[in-house]
């Protein structure tokens, strides 16, 4: 595994969030992700995982606490091209949208290119390269709605990767995706982390696979119940999960 520097890519300090006055979704979260680390975020449904991600992407307003990206406070952060994001909803897009795979991936370059610019030769080359990387080199001209669910998911991963980000944020990207694509997906992530040294934040239900692949694991249910090495997590898994989930969770583990 490649060296992990101490440079913090994500820092959350005392972050709390509530959608309305009565229900707190996040309470006093402190979390840090360094360059080159692969952090797996697990937790039950409605535990605030997606809320946490939306907060640090600026998609929800920050109510309490501090968020820093690449050492800069969120409100001053502008280098959005350093972050690639694949949302939970990515595969629920309008299937009839008349766009090719190539066109969809090109939207990932917007932050990097800035306003009033068209795709140049260099950008087109980048798109072809990243499509090849996710195994869709021959699908560039296909309408995106005609692909299988797993292939569509790979299109969105390609869109997140095309600007060569230093941080990749993935919110449950393997839900409803075929087994072959899931395998390919984890291999791709390992490759990215080890060769390109990028930081990855992956949200998933799949605790079994996660503990084998990630370098760090965090367990969330409103509060942070664990943050550390996967080995440590496995040793205390029962205690952590029953504290976080509040009931028996063996059903949630998948054998891979």
């Amino acid at each position: 595994m490649k060296k992990q520097s101490d440079f913090p890519v994500i820092e959350l300090q005392n972050v709390s969030f509530q959608y309305d006055a009565r229900t707190r979704v996040l309470e006093d979260i402190n979390l840090r992700l360094n360059q080159g680390e692969f952090l797996g975020l697990v937790g039950p449904n409605g535990s605030g995982k997606s809320t946490l991600i939306k907060l640090l992407l600026g998609l929800l307003p920050l109510q309490q606490g501090d968020v820093k990206l690449f050492g800069k406070p969120l409100s001053q952060f502008t280098s959005w091209n350093r972050i690639g994001y694949v949302s939970q909803k990515a595969t629920h897009f309008n299937l009839g949208f008349p766009a090719t795979v190539f066109e969809v991936v090109s939207t990932g370059l917007i932050g990097k290119m800035g306003l009033f610019r068209w795709l140049g030769q260099k950008e087109k080359e980048q798109i072809r390269h990243v499509l090849h990387l996710v195994g869709l080199g021959d699908k560039a001209k296909s309408p995106v709605g005609k692909l299988s669910g797993g292939q569509q998911q790979r299109v969105f991963i390609a869109r997140a990767l095309v600007s060569s980000p230093d941080l990749l944020i993935l919110d449950e990207p393997t839900v409803g995706v075929d087994a072959e694509s899931v395998d390919l997906f984890y291999r791709l992530l390992e490759n990215l982390q080890q060769k390109e040294n990028i930081a990855i934040l992956l949200v998933s239900h799949d605790i079994g696979v996660m503990t084998r692949k990630v370098s760090h694991i965090a367990c969330l249910n409103k509060k942070l119940f664990f943050h550390g090495a996967p080995q440590q997590f496995r040793e205390n898994q029962e205690a952590i999960l029953s504290a976080a989930y509040g009931h028996d969770v063996h059903l949630l583990e998948h054998a891979h």
């Binding site: 959005w80 994001y85 066109e103 917007i110 306003l115 009033f116």
Partner: peptide, 23 residues
Amino acid sequence: CFLFKELFSLSFDEENARTTGMP
């Protein structure tokens, strides 16, 4: 013409468009 890629991105996936930092 000048805002083509931004308009396309907003039409296709507004949430993702927001994370690219465009106005």
